[in-house]
Structure formats: C-alpha cells, structure tokens
Simulated scan of single mutants.
Amino acid sequence: METININLTNGYSIKSLCADDFNIVKELCEKCSDYYLLIEGVLPSKKDVDEIFIDLPPNKSYEDKYVLGIFKYDELAGIVDIVRDFPDAGEWMLGLMLIKIDERGNGLGRNVHRALSEWASNLGAKSFRIGVVIDNHKAMKFWSNLGYKKIKEVDMEFTAKKHTVNVMRLQLDE
C-alpha cells in the first residue's frame, strides 16, 4: 500500500498508519472514550484498536484499506479508516473518523474531509459512503453539513448497544 502524506494548514497533516502505531492509536481511542461509550456502550478495548487495523468488509483486501492518522505536528489528533471501492467500484467507505475531543469544533474535521475527498477523487473515487449512528447527533449534523445524504437505514448491534445507523453518501464528482 502506498504511503500517504498530505499536509494541511497550521501544522496538521494526514499520514499513513500501520500496526506499529498501535500504542498511539490506543491512546487516541482512550482519549475519545465519549465516542466509544455512546456507540459501543463500553470503554475502548485492545480489540477495538485491533479492528481499526484489521477489519475488512467482505471481498476486500488490505490493499484496499487505508488507516490514516491526523497529526498536529508529531502528535496524533485523530484517525480515519477508509476502504476503497466498497461496496461498489468508485464508492469509498469511511469506516471511522475519530478526532480528539480538544481538536473538535475547530474546522479540523472539515479540512481533513476536504483533503481526503481530493486525494480519493484523484485515485478514482466518485463518492464517499459512511454509516452514522442516529443517536450521535453531532456526527449526524457534521456529515449532513458536508452534503451527505441518507440512502438507507440499518439496525446494528455494537458491543453493548443496538443502534439504528443512517447509511449516507456524498457524490464527489459534483
């Protein structure tokens, strides 16, 4: 898999992560315990961190998966998990975008999304797809404000909770 290194503004960048980065990702997940409690119903575990690096949808390989770190200088401020061409060619699945609490609300998520949209479009992506738990009101507002539209609803079981998830899509080529 190619190494990703995208410079943003104000000392932020997006860089490829690998299994060697497990400890810094674990620390980030622990700092984002509010997300895990809302979605999973429990604090993040080693299994949750492992899944960021190893979970794949059906019929996809690790060549299709990007685990990216959002860095503020040398400190991990967030992560993004993307799978290209899923569920169909040209549609890329954003499996997770997790940003530290003290980095939220400052435009970082929007800037990261803009940079990733441009990067993915250059690699052939026509749309992004994401699943958003409807109880995660801030995330619903964030993704809707970026232009994502609901295409369907699914019920999902998480570690200790059940949720309705809105599957949403954003056309990148408009």
Rank of each mutant, 00 (worst) to 15 (best):
Y73S: 12
R104W: 12
L37Q: 12
L94I: 13
F86H: 14
G107P: 11
K46W: 00
D50G: 00
G107Y: 00
K46I: 03
I70V: 15
E40M: 09
G78I: 03
M97P: 06
V67S: 06
D88W: 10
D102F: 08
D64W: 00
L37C: 02
R84W: 09
I39R: 07
D74W: 01
P44I: 00
L108N: 12
K60F: 05
G78Q: 10
N59Q: 09
Y62M: 15
K46E: 12
I79E: 03
E40N: 14
E63W: 05
D74M: 02
I99M: 13
M97K: 02
W92C: 02
E40C: 11
M97R: 04
I82Y: 10
S61Y: 08
I99D: 13
S61T: 15
V83H: 04
G109L: 05
E103I: 04
A77I: 06
V49R: 02
H113G: 00
D64P: 05
D74Y: 03
S61W: 05
F86C: 10
D88A: 12
Y66C: 07
L37P: 00
L43R: 11
G105Q: 12
R110G: 00
R84E: 15
V42K: 14
I70R: 04
K65E: 09
E75P: 02
P57H: 14
